[in-house]
């Protein structure tokens, strides 16, 4: 089993999420942030990393989750409001 695959996948997903975020594709960004965190969490829980590496990954997860929550709130509000740009 290649231990680096999941970590690399997580990094790729997070990178894509940031791209979509920047491009204002918030639904896609939200989805990708969630997936990235899932992979990061898997790495932390099931794949051997040093303590510092783990904590660094956890901190990243916290940031992505925070951002994802904000996107989710924004999308919820957008859903409720009529789709008319101001």
């Amino acid at each position: 089993a290649n231990n680096n695959n999941n970590l690399q996948k997580a990094i790729d997903l997070a990178s894509k999420a940031a791209q979509e975020d920047k491009a204002e594709n918030y639904e896609e960004a939200l989805r990708l942030y969630q997936h990235a965190v899932q992979y990061f969490l898997h790495v932390v829980k099931y794949e051997a990393q040093g303590d510092k590496a783990k904590q660094s990954i956890r901190a990243k997860c916290a940031e992505y989750l925070d951002r994802a929550e904000k996107l989710k709130e924004y999308l919820k509000k957008k859903e409720k409001a009529p789709a008319k740009p101001v």
Binding site: Q34, V37, L41, R58, A59, A62, L65, D66
Partner: peptide, 24 residues
């Protein structure tokens, strides 16, 4: 503040927030 929370977050807390995100 948010930064120190991020620095010390636990696996369980990450999981909790991830689940919360997944729920509509």
């Amino acid at each position: 503040p948010a930064k120190s929370k991020a620095a010390t977050i636990s696996d369980a807390e990450i999981e909790r927030q991830l689940k919360a995100l997944g729920m509509d």
